[in-house]
């Protein structure tokens, strides 16, 4: 069976403390398996980045983790809770096991150094025993992987386009050969040809090196094609999680259906685009019951009252997926 590599259990993350706290991630449970690409999608502000940074404890202040655990399963060795690590072990965990491409990371390149230098420095820090020549070779290889011509290696960040800088960041993350790669909107600045090329490289590399990927994006159509499983977030919670193809063919949560329906179609007749009516919930005063009910086209009597638990629906193939919607009562709601 597929082995878990990272298990997120009942994670709560907020910004600020006490009365003014904003609960950005609420009781999230999610498992990343070895060698898997897990997609995370949802509207802006739904808590995707907060979840990713919570998991690696890289939350900017005033972000605080208020509950839950994040269990990491090393390749050799026994599982441990990342949230319980001391500073030194935490640094070691981040350093050796994870690589993150932050949202907007294209600005985190150092403006005063050539990208070739930044890339080889990072590789050197991780693998001090590599020769200078091998480092340069690895750097060139990574840049080729993300489609940057060798004659631009010596450019400074400001001499590169937005998408080129984004690609350098992806190359840098992959150069570290981590166990878990977290990518937060890594391809927002890329055209589809490039996107596809990089994703294909990522999938191939994953097969060769066996790492796992959490891929955060608002582009659900990209995930449907390229992720193994997809989790959908709304108002800080996971509202649906399923194998990519099942989610696309048969979205159970009305919010997922809304997300899928709001893409402009490139092929076929021009549809009228409605999007999802209404606006995302105010995290400081969430609607009662199902937090999606004010915007839900299928809401019925219990929705404003009862919080739907996340659990497997009673449908064929239901055991491979979970959903939090009263239309699909869970057979095994997770205990809260």
């Amino acid at each position: 069976m597929r082995q878990p590599v990272l298990e997120i259990r009942n994670l709560d993350v907020g910004y600020g403390l006490g009365d003014v706290a904003l609960r950005a991630v609420r009781d999230v449970s999610l498992t990343l398996h070895r060698g898997e690409v897990l997609g995370l999608a949802g509207e802006s502000g739904s808590g995707k980045s907060t979840l990713a940074y919570g998991v690696t404890r890289l939350l900017p202040p005033p972000g605080v983790i208020t509950g839950g655990e994040v269990v990491y399963h090393p390749e050799n060795g026994s599982p441990y809770d990342v949230l319980a690590l001391g500073d030194r072990e935490l640094r070691a965990f981040r350093w050796a096991e994870t690589a993150i491409v932050f949202q907007g990371a294209m600005n985190s390149l150092n403006p005063v150094h050539r990208i070739s230098v930044q890339l080889t420095d990072v590789i050197a820090a991780h693998q001090p025993d590599l020769s200078a020549r091998a480092r340069a070779e690895r750097a060139r290889e990574m840049l080729r992987l993300v489609g940057i011509a060798a004659d631009r290696m010596d450019a400074y960040p400001h001499q590169l386009s937005g998408g080129m800088r984004q690609r350098v960041m992806i190359g840098m993350a992959l150069a570290l050969q981590p166990q878990i790669v977290i990518m937060d909107e890594p391809t927002t600045a890329l055209d589809v040809v490039m996107q596809r090329q990089i994703l294909r490289q990522l999938v191939a590399l994953r097969e060769r090196l066996g790492f796992s990927v959490i891929f955060i994006t608002h582009d659900l159509s990209l995930l449907v094609e390229f992720a193994d499983r997809i989790a959908i977030m709304y108002g800080g919670r996971i509202v649906e999680e399923a194998p990519a193809s099942a989610l696309y063919r048969d979205a159970l949560h009305p919010y997922t259906a809304g997300l899928l329906g709001s893409f402009p179609a490139l092929r076929g007749p021009r549809r009228d685009l409605t999007g999802i009516p209404g606006s995302p919930p105010d995290l400081t005063s969430m609607p009662t019951g199902c937090s999606f009910h004010p915007r839900c086209p299928k809401a019925f009597e219990p929705c404003p009252v009862t919080i739907p638990p996340l659990g497997s629906p009673d449908t064929p193939g239901g055991s491979t997926r979970t959903v939090a919607c009263l239309l699909h009562p869970a057979t095994n709601p997770e205990v809260r």
Binding site: R144, V192, V193, L199, R200, D228, A244, R267
Partner: peptide, 30 residues
């Protein structure tokens, strides 16, 4: 090439890896 590369949900998961000979592949020019 650009149009053909647009994400197409009907090409489901795994297809990207399986896709072997995409046309017009290759690197952007110097």
């Amino acid at each position: 090439l650009l149009i053909d590369s647009a994400p197409d949900p009907d090409r489901v998961a795994g297809a990207v890896a399986a896709e072997v000979a995409d046309r017009g592949d290759g690197e952007p020019p110097s």
